[in-house]
Computed example of a mutant assay.
Amino acid sequence: MINSYLTKQSEADDAAMHLLFSANRWEKRAAMLERLNSGTTLIVDRYAHSGVAFTAAKGLPGLDTAWCRAPDVGLPAPDTVFFLDLSPEQAAERGGYGQERYETTDLQKKVRQAFGTLQDPSWVVVDAARSVETVQAEIAEESERILSRCEAGVPLGTLWPSA
């Protein structure tokens, strides 16, 4: 259902899809916590921030940022969010652009702006217009710094505790 929704193969209510993605994160919460508490590092692509940005960017009545964040309040918070920043125009130059439902220049501009409103000190904004090697090196360097900080005993937080 989720994959066919993302690839334009089916239609679904935007609020329902947002809640479905959140439900999937809650379903995995216990397993994530177990792994984190055992010392495993998790790398998660398109976590809650992505859902908030994409749903809120649609500008639909009632689906503002506060509403979009609410279903994920209390989930484990990432120690760091790597935001690979790339303009919609630059993304469109890459292969495969436009195959997913949300890969339109207008929506991508709104999504990029929505991500900007979610940024906090835990974010590392990476200029993704650079070479793959340069981006990879920056992420690797930042990851080592973050892993060292976590090994020193930084407690696990939760998403949006003040929401």
Rank of each mutant, 00 (worst) to 15 (best):
L63K: 04
L63D: 02
D64V: 00
T65Y: 07
T65R: 12
T65W: 05
W67E: 07
W67Q: 06
C68F: 14
R69L: 08
R69T: 05
A70G: 06
P71K: 08
P71H: 08
P71W: 11
D72K: 05
D72E: 07
D72V: 04
V73H: 09
G74W: 03
G74M: 10
L75Q: 01
L75I: 01
L75F: 06
L75C: 03
L75W: 06
P76M: 00
P76F: 02
P78Q: 08
D79N: 13
D79P: 11
V81K: 03
V81F: 08
F82A: 00
F83T: 00
F83I: 00
F83Y: 15
L84E: 00
L84S: 04
L84I: 03
L84N: 00
L84Y: 08
D85S: 09
D85T: 00
L86D: 00
S87T: 08
S87D: 01
E89D: 10
E89Q: 11
Q90F: 14
Q90E: 14
Q90M: 12
A92S: 12
A92R: 09
E93I: 04
E93P: 10
E93Y: 10
G95D: 15
G95V: 14
G96W: 00
G96F: 00
G96D: 04
Y97T: 08
G98R: 05
G98E: 07
Q99I: 14
E100V: 09
E100N: 11
R101D: 01
R101T: 06
R101Q: 06
R101A: 05
Y102R: 12
Y102A: 14
E103N: 03
E103I: 03
T104F: 01
T105F: 13
T105L: 15
D106L: 15
D106V: 13
Q108Y: 04
K109N: 14
K109W: 07
K109C: 09
K110R: 15
K110V: 01
K110L: 08
K110P: 02
K110W: 03
V111D: 02
V111T: 01
R112E: 02
R112L: 06
R112Q: 09
R112P: 00
Q113W: 11
Q113C: 13
A114V: 10
A114T: 14
A114W: 03
F115Y: 15
G116P: 06
G116F: 08
G116D: 10
G116A: 07
G116H: 08
T117Q: 12
L118E: 11
L118T: 06
Q119P: 06
D120C: 12
D120V: 05
P121S: 13
P121V: 10
P121E: 07
P121M: 12
S122R: 15
S122E: 05
S122C: 11
V124D: 11
V124E: 13
V125I: 09
V125M: 01
V125P: 05
D127K: 08
D127E: 05
A128F: 02
A128S: 10
A128K: 02
A128R: 02
A129N: 12
A129D: 15
A129R: 11
R130W: 13
R130H: 13
R130K: 12
R130P: 03
R130F: 09
S131V: 12
V132S: 11
V132Y: 14
V132H: 14
E133C: 04
E133N: 11
T134V: 10
V135N: 02
V135Q: 03
V135E: 02
Q136C: 13
A137E: 13
A137T: 08
E138Y: 09
I139Y: 03
I139R: 04
A140V: 10
A140Q: 11
E141N: 12
E142R: 15
